[in-house]
């Protein structure tokens, strides 16, 4: 019986070592997303703790060689929906038609967007960018963070939000258009734009 017990403890140690190597390095990424979704650092930390305990309990179900980060995000999503979503404050709704009109007016006043790159990219403050992301409706905020900040593929995002890839594309497009107009407006109000 003793060899069996020792072998079992070896397995447990190996499982924990694998978990440490595969899952722990993504903690900051998950926290970054959790904070942007919950809007509260305590809620975000609690959410991460719950997510990691749950993922450790089910780590033997994780398919080695697949994207551990995407797997952790899926576990976090379920935990978030169950416990934290009701508490989170939803930002104001966005009038997308108004955004489109504003975007078209920016577009018609520029023959070339090249110099906008320098003016927006270099001058915007970190807080202004964070504020613009936080003001997005949750569906848009989720896809844009997962794609542009966390680098998940469309397939992984589609899996995360339980929607077809077409929905990921269209939400991303809209989210970026809303963000572009918001960032442009900040830059314009603060006098960052030469025009």
């Amino acid at each position: 019986m003793f060899p069996f017990l020792f072998a079992m403890l070896d397995d447990q140690q190996q499982l924990y070592a694998d978990f440490e190597a595969e899952a722990i390095p993504h903690m900051d990424s998950l926290y970054n997303f959790a904070l942007k979704i919950t809007g509260d650092s305590d809620d975000a930390s609690d959410l991460i703790q719950e997510t990691y305990l749950k993922s450790f309990r089910f780590f033997d179900k994780f398919e080695k060689g697949t994207n551990c980060k995407a797997w952790l995000f899926r576990i976090m999503k379920n935990t978030y929906i169950n416990t934290y979503r009701k508490r989170a404050k939803e930002p104001d709704k966005v009038d997308y038609e108004e955004i489109e009109n504003f975007y078209e007016s920016i577009k018609s006043s520029y023959s070339d967007a090249s110099h906008l790159e320098k003016e927006l990219y270099d001058n915007l403050l970190d807080d202004e960018i964070s504020q613009a992301i936080s003001s997005l409706p949750e569906d848009f905020r989720t896809v844009v963070i997962l794609c542009d900040i966390e680098g998940l593929s469309y397939e992984e995002i589609a899996d995360f939000i339980d929607c077809p890839i077409g929905t990921v594309r269209s939400r991303l497009h809209r989210a970026r258009k809303i963000l572009f107009t918001k960032l442009y407006k900040y830059a314009s109000d603060k006098g960052y734009l030469e025009k």
Partner: peptide
């Protein structure tokens, strides 16, 4: 360009 710039900023 506008969408690439937004992605780049994010």
């Amino acid at each position: 360009k506008a969408e690439s710039l937004t992605k780049n900023i994010l």
